[in-house]
């Protein structure tokens, strides 16, 4: 029973700590290599998407340069960098696209591949993914 109590205690600790983990501070922006690092990462990410037949049909009429610029700006802001995202909100951007759960996950996999290629640490990857996962509800099924 002791062991079970330890498991439950660990679980409680985990639940408590996630609220603290959810905060964004500029350290994530720095870990990603600031503006240049984020821009480079997003360039690799866009290339990954371009090669991903599961999702590429959603980007048929997309201005790739603008997409890259907006992505970088948005990530800069989300990770605590000195940027202001000037694009539309995620619901507006994805309305009418009918993004499926599988397609959302495919994009996540493309981002993970891009982060691996850029040599970003697992801890940094996880902190970024945790922030972006919050948009799942705003992006899927719109």
């Amino acid at each position: 029973m002791n062991y079970f109590a330890i498991l439950l205690a660990a679980l409680a600790l985990l639940l408590g700590s996630t609220t603290a983990q959810a905060r964004t501070d500029a350290s994530l922006y720095q870990e990603l290599g600031a503006k240049q690092g984020i821009s480079d990462l997003m360039a690799v990410f866009v290339l990954e998407i371009a090669q991903d037949e599961r999702v590429i049909h959603h980007f048929d009429n997309v201005d790739i340069d603008r997409f890259h610029r907006m992505l970088s700006q948005h990530l800069c802001e989300l990770t605590g960098g000195p940027c202001e995202y000037t694009g539309a909100d995620m619901v507006e951007v994805h309305t009418g696209m009918a993004i499926t759960r599988a397609e959302f996950n495919a994009i996540v996999e493309d981002l993970i591949t891009a982060m691996e290629k850029e040599g970003i640490a697992v801890s940094t990857q996880n902190r970024l993914l945790a922030i972006l996962a919050e948009f799942h509800g705003e992006i899927v099924g719109q």
Partner: peptide, 10 residues
Amino acid sequence: WLAGPFARTW
């Protein structure tokens, strides 16, 4: 939790 303790996924 994608970024739980030690910034690991739990």
